[in-house]
Amino acid sequence: MGGRFFFWLVMTFLLFLFVMLGVKHGAVQSSWGEALMALFRTGNNDDLIYFIWHLRLPKILAALAVGGALAVSGVILQNILRNPLASSFTLGLSQGAAFGATFSIIVMGSGMGSGLLMGNLGMVAFGAFAGAMLSALIILLFSFVKGMTPQGLILAGVAMSAFFSACTMLLQYFSTDTQLAAAVFWTFGDLGKGSWSEALTVLAVMAAGVLFALRHSWDYNAVQWGEMHAEGLGVEVKKIRIYSLIVTSLMSAFATAYYGVIGFVGLIAPHMVRMMFRHTGHSFLIPASALLGGVFLLGADTLAQMVFYPLALPVGVITAFAGVPMFLFILMKRSIKNGKG
């Protein structure tokens, strides 16, 4: 119990720290005093008030919402597919979204508005959403195939991932330089793409997803023991698996549609919580991963702002640098465990 209290305490501290750093740091430099005054809409630096309230705070909210959504998606997918490497990224949902966005930019011309690379964010987001949902739908259809195992679903995800990547490359091959630039820019996961409305939308979807996951947290605890055990405990495993796939697809699709491909958060956050609390059930794992995912993404974004200041890196680059070693570590740990077994 003490460990959990300490966890919430540290997370709250880190959340506060990264929110304050996120408020202070940006393209326009300011002192701590100026930033705090602008945060409370006092002082006379109207530009800074505008930047904080219209750019930095929506970005902070987006980091927390997207990080939470991807982390909870990861927790659920790893449980229902009984594979620690499952996430919306490894299942091909992100690649489906990238294809949808690329299709929207190159074929529908959505990225060409008013001289900006991201001319029509709404259309691109819709394309990405459709792509992610198409990928999710195919995975869902596979889940209805009689005798399809969770491992089979993961492999189907890998195949979908490769398919959508190939489709994206094909479209890019036939695009103009400007279209290509817009499409590539979109695939960089970047939290600065949306405004309050996008951040609030993802937050609402994330909150609904977390509530769904918490409602079924004890079902997930039972599913951990295997399908037969869960059925014996009164869990309708097939139903839970399908509903969970739909909910995680929606969470990932909304997050990716507005903010691009941000990989590995769904892998890092749940596994960090599991490493800290080895015996924990899902009623703790779900909220803890949501918070850690949000704080991690916010921290990664703050780092992305500060490393090459004034140049801001896309946050997806930072999460990938942190995520790939984690992915390999889990893979190694599993192999060693299997070798011993």
């Binding site: 605890n221 295997g226 037969m228 055990h229 059925e231 014996g232 405990l233 869990v235 059930g281």
Partner: peptide, 27 residues
């Protein structure tokens, strides 16, 4: 499940506490 308590053949235990494992029976 309220009428039949069924224990299938078990292969691997799941890493959770004894208390939580027993409590899971109240699912």
């Amino acid at each position: 499940a309220k009428k039949i308590a069924y224990l299938p053949q078990t292969t691997h235990p799941v890493p959770c506490s004894v208390y939580e494992t027993v409590l899971l029976g109240r699912k």
